[in-house]
């Protein structure tokens, strides 16, 4: 390197490293806005409390009206009809085996809460 001044090479190297660093950080920032649905929206979309409440209510109906099928049918109809109109969710409850079916277009949930014919012991929650 003939008469070039080779002092300050460290400064140039640092400048180079920092500029590459800034470039990658910019790439990261750029990627970060790619997120579609935020966590809060996903939580709001998932009908957690609807399903918990429904299970709870079916258990209440089972424990109160297990021996009176005519009462069961009326109360189950209450839930099915109100749910469709107010919550836009299809609910289907089968007494006897106490199967709960819930579907609102996104979340599909089916569970046998208490099967009288099955000796398996179910716990409440």
């Amino acid at each position: 390197m003939a008469w070039l001044n080779d002092e300050g090479q460290w400064i140039i190297l640092m400048g180079f490293i920092i500029s590459v660093g800034i470039f990658f950080l910019a790439l990261l920032v750029n990627q970060s806005i790619l997120v579609g649905q935020t966590t809060a929206e996903a939580v709001l979309d998932f009908p957690k409390s609807d399903i918990q409440d429904l299970r709870n209510e079916v258990w209440v109906i089972y424990s109160r009206y297990n021996n009176t099928p005519s009462e069961q049918d009326k109360v189950i109809r209450d839930i099915e009809v109100i749910s469709l109109i107010k919550k836009n969710a299809v609910v289907n409850i089968t007494p006897g085996m106490w199967r709960v079916h819930y579907f609102n277009g996104i979340t599909n949930y089916t569970e046998v809460i208490y099967d009288a014919n099955n000796t398996f012991f179910y716990f409440y929650y």
Binding site: S49, N56, E57, K74, V75, D78, I79, I82
Partner: peptide, 27 residues
């Protein structure tokens, strides 16, 4: 909006509801 199913006994004194065991939705 939050909701809760409530089971109501036929022996109630709520003039709005029918006189039967039923489940209502509280919103």
């Amino acid at each position: 909006k939050v909701t809760r199913w409530v089971n109501v006994n036929d022996n109630h004194s709520n003039s709005h509801l029918d006189n039967r065991n039923q489940t209502v939705l509280l919103e």
